[in-house]
Design a protein around this nucleic acid. Structure first.
Lengths: 241, 241
DNA sequence: CGGAGGTTTGAGCAGCCTCAATGCTCGTGG
DNA sequence: CCACGAGCATTGAGGCTGCTCAAACCTCCG
């Protein structure tokens, strides 16, 4: 299913067939990491670019007192540290939260990809979108209620997973513990649990294990104040007049 | 004082003299905005790149209920929306918080600049640093106490303003109201006020109007858990063994 | 069967937010 | 020179709610 690495980029920018082939060839099969493994540790130097082929991960920072903040999710197609080799040390860590297949590209590989205009554009775009997501998360943590924060993340996951073919129109598998969800939105596990209960109580979501179903997507989006514009997907752009 | 637009970039990457000249020539004198003016509004389309020559601004998003979240500060030397013309609409607004001089570069101008390797590198670097700051802010809001949050922002401002020659070793002028500080770190004005009082009470800062003095910079940094690594300044890189 | 990791629940407290009023500072106009 | 107003800083009271601490339960999986 390494098809999904294309999905993420094509959602942002169309790619010629030969670019897709090049991408597959350069990325290859990748190496396998198991859930919980670090992809890159905080403070490490790295001179390769990691690409998620399969599986899910996240970026995080830890504080001296052991608290952790998750600062981004990694999905198939993500170039985790594009141009990150410019920095001599990583200012945050990245970890696999499910089993992952990950490619490690050298600078030459990256140059090969970015010499293709459409690919370069898609990668640029994806970097810009990463920044945009970060800004939206800031809004989420700073200015929304706990329930709305959790609802907002669920909306984002629904949309982002749809793009890589891992969600239906109204459901997806949440690959995160409530603890990790809390580390994402700045709440404790207990508060996340109660926020989810409120969402269930309001009929905005239903859960069976980690399978999340959203009976009325528009209602959840409204509740969460979720506007997918910040994800800058092509489909949104083309729907507009 | 348009010297400071160089300061910001040179703090990240050294520039040849001719690149600096080119930068000055392209940027020019810019146009003047008064405090409170919008540089770009949320949802606008823009096909120019705004560069802050002089003055301070911020990026923000507003919520349906009128709440506001500040998602970044703009200082002299910032290319506010580099490559932002790739997007068809801004997902956030930018406003001047003091009087500003602002240049508007066309795509050709930008191409002229990025065809110089050192400049391209410096601009890339500065984009990466913007992302890094965003991640640190996320940690700040999600996982630090109100006092530490405010202290952290003060540390960041001290360091960032030093780079553009607008702060001494231990003091700077805070160009933000307590309301704006609150919109930055996810607190109310009242809580910011009380956080500042605690910092003053602990002897970590002293204030005279909006002039902030930090008697013991190391102590404030320790209290705030501030590690300037995320700003990726050259000076930090070169100090390391 | 046992254990680990994750979810759920309860009680109690600290602290952030809301609401509201009072000062303070500085620039403007009389 | 002073009165005035706008914008910002500061203070107080009170309620809500997110956090802490702790325990129980549930679900896989070896």
């Amino acid at each position: 299913m390494s098809q999904s690495i294309i999905g993420k980029l094509e959602a942002l920018h169309p790619l010629p067939e030969e670019d897709k082939k090049l991408l597959h060839a350069v990325v290859g099969r990748g190496k396998t990491l198991k859930a919980g493994d670090d992809i890159v540790r905080e403070g490490d130097h790295t001179d390769v670019v990691h690409v998620i082929i399969e599986g899910h991960g996240f970026r995080y920072k830890t504080l001296p007192d052991g608290k952790r903040q998750i600062i981004g999710y990694l999905v198939p197609g993500d170039f985790c540290d594009l141009y990150g080799f410019l920095f001599d040390r990583m200012d945050h860590g990245m970890a696999a939260r499910t089993q992952c297949r990950i490619a490690q590209l050298t600078e030459e590989h990256v140059l090969m990809l970015t010499s293709r205009p459409a690919l370069a554009r898609a990668l640029w775009w994806s970097e810009l979108v990463n920044g945009s997501i970060l800004r939206e998360w800031l809004v989420n943590m700073g200015r929304r209620t706990p329930s709305a924060r959790v609802a907002h993340i669920l909306c984002e996951l629904l949309v982002r997973l749809q793009v890589v073919g891992q969600a239906t129109a109204d459901s997806f598998k949440l690959e995160l513990s409530q603890n990790e969800l809390g580390d994402t939105v700045g709440l404790t596990t207990v508060s996340v649990n109660r926020a989810l209960q409120r969402l269930r109580g309001a009929g905005l979501i239903s859960q069976s294990g980690r399978e999340i179903t959203i009976p009325d997507v528009a209602a959840l989006k409204a509740f969460a104040d979720f506007d997918p514009g910040y994800l800058h997907f092509r489909q949104d752009r083309e729907e507009r007049p």
